[in-house]
Design a protein around this nucleic acid. Structure first.
Length: 423
RNA sequence: GGAGAGAUGGCUGAGUGGUUUAAAGCGGCGGAUUGCUAAUCCGUUGUACGCCUAUCAGGCGUACCGGGGGUUCGAAUCCCCCUCUCUCCGCCA
């Protein structure tokens, strides 16, 4: 959520930012409602001030045995007027909130301007894409041949887009999760969290999933709960409506399953593991002081990249342009893995600085050097997303004989096994 | 699921309709005293919003005692609904 006063004072800058994002925003309507609300508020507060003073006087005069019926009946009228104004003010406040919530964050000044994904900029490409002396298979064939994933039974149990990992396939998934959690807790200083996977509407609003992305989430309507689409939701909301009394930065890492309906993506990437309704992800979240957040964003990207470097997988880092930036992000890097079988890049991480956009929504503050409460800056990044990492790993390390080699960093997590073979 | 108790400032904890715009203590901050530390004494103390002075500060006002409604001239206090915590019972991996 943007700061209303900032919008008031920087109308032109906000208009430009929205245009660069390609976002349709009714600023005139917003400012009109804001103006009306303040006028009503002023009148109501003035009357309340009067009522407070007179009520006090009534108390004093009554104790002195004087008759106060005149004042009481006058104040009864004032009270009625106050009630009307309060109702109007509540209505305007709700209207204002409704107009404010769907406004996306303002992109950081360094973000390249562009209309859509075509305007994204490749920042760096790391590692070498493999050259095969045989026809490389896709992960679907590899996973089926090696008995790692049972696509058919996943569909039977839950429908298309749900996976059943079996045997060493399940072990590999668990190994990757544990490898990443160990890396981020031991070497990058994150505190491990196991959060709830169901969250209610206030939490979903805090990080910006609601109201805009309601259709992409699985809802448990009978209890007013939503399955999390990412661990970002519970992690960032851990400190919702708090004035933090602990030193910043706060760094959390969590492995959770993520649930996505993929409502707008029906028919895309339907085969295999690239786009599924449930996948595992290791997520990094940091709450930091405002002047640190852009340095921390670079650090966060490094932490995600380290995963891929240890696994010796080729990847590239892209900076999203204004038109492709997520709703709440001020700046965002995507990390894409090379899928050697598909001959294509797969997004496995998205690292964003939200500045104070989420913190304002969620009410997460800290005390600055002068002791004044200020909103923290929040960041998050996948470190990294499973399923697609799994895809890239299988396709990257496939051998001519149909087996898949295990990178050295992962062997200790698989009882020293260095190769997956058909049984 | 049933019954009961509770939720007050950074913390502890008073307060059952109007001199309480929340007592007191602890903590924090500033100062005094003091070889040093400790102790003691004095002062101070939150958040949000609105308006104003024309401004890295201050003044005025409003709201805030878990959340939301209601009664009243006036609500931390009375009434209703909700949430959460604790205790006991039931159920259960």
């Amino acid at each position: 959520m943007l700061d209303l006063r900032y919008i008031r004072d920087n109308e032109a800058a906000v208009r430009q930012a929205m245009a660069q994002r390609g976002a349709e925003v009714d600023l005139d309507g917003l400012l009109r409602v804001d103006h009306a609300r303040r006028a009503v508020l002023q009148e109501a507060e003035q009357l309340k001030s009067e009522r407070n003073a007179v009520s006090k006087e009534i108390g004093v005069r009554k104790r002195a045995g004087e008759d106060t019926t005149d004042q009481q009946s006058r104040m009864r009228c004032v009270g009625q007027r106050i009630q009307e104004l309060d109702e109007e003010s509540r209505r305007l406040q709700a209207d204002l909130q409704e107009r404010l919530l769907p406004i996306p964050n303002i992109p950081c000044a360094d973000v390249p301007v562009g209309p859509d994904a075509s305007g994204n900029r490749v920042v760096r490409e790391v590692g070498t894409r493999p050259a095969f002396d045989f026809e490389p298979a896709t992960h679907v064939d590899l996973a089926e041949r090696l008995g790692l994933v049972d696509f058919a039974r996943g569909a039977k149990i839950s429908g298309s887009g749900f996976l059943v990992y079996t045997g060493w396939g399940a072990r590999l998934e668990r190994a990757l999760i544990q490898f990443m959690l160990d890396l981020h807790t031991r070497e990058h200083g994150y505190t491990e969290i196991q959060p709830p996977l169901l969250c209610h509407a206030a939490t979903m609003t805090g990080t910006g999933q609601l109201p805009k992305m309601a259709d992409d989430m699985y809802a448990v309507e009978s209890d007013g709960l939503y399955l999390i689409p990412t661990a970002e939701v519970p992690l960032t909301n851990l400190h919702r409506e708090e004035l933090l009394d602990r030193p910043l930065p706060i760094k959390y890492v969590a492995h959770t399953p993520c649930f996505r309906r993929e409502a707008g993506a029906a028919g895309r990437d339907t085969r295999g593991m690239i786009r599924v309704h449930q996948f595992d992800k290791v997520e990094l979240v940091q709450l930091v002081e405002p002047d640190q957040s852009y340095a921390v964003l670079e650090e966060l990207v490094q932490h995600a990249e380290t995963v891929l470097q240890r696994l010796e997988l080729p990847y590239r880092v892209c900076e999203l342009c204004t038109g492709d930036l997520g709703f709440a992000a001020a700046r965002c890097y995507d990390i894409e893995l090379w899928a050697a079988g598909h001959q294509d890049w797969l997004e496995v991480s998205s690292c964003s600085n939200f500045e104070d956009f989420q913190a304002r929504r969620a009410g997460i503050r800290y005390r600055d050097g002068a002791g004044k409460p200020r909103f923290v800056h929040t960041l998050n990044g996948s470190g990294v997303a499973l399923a697609r990492l799994y895809v890239a790993l299988l396709e990257q390390y496939q051998q001519a004989d149909g087996s898949v080699r295990i990178p050295a960093a992962l062997c200790p997590y698989l009882d020293g096994k260095d190769r997956l073979q058909a049984v």
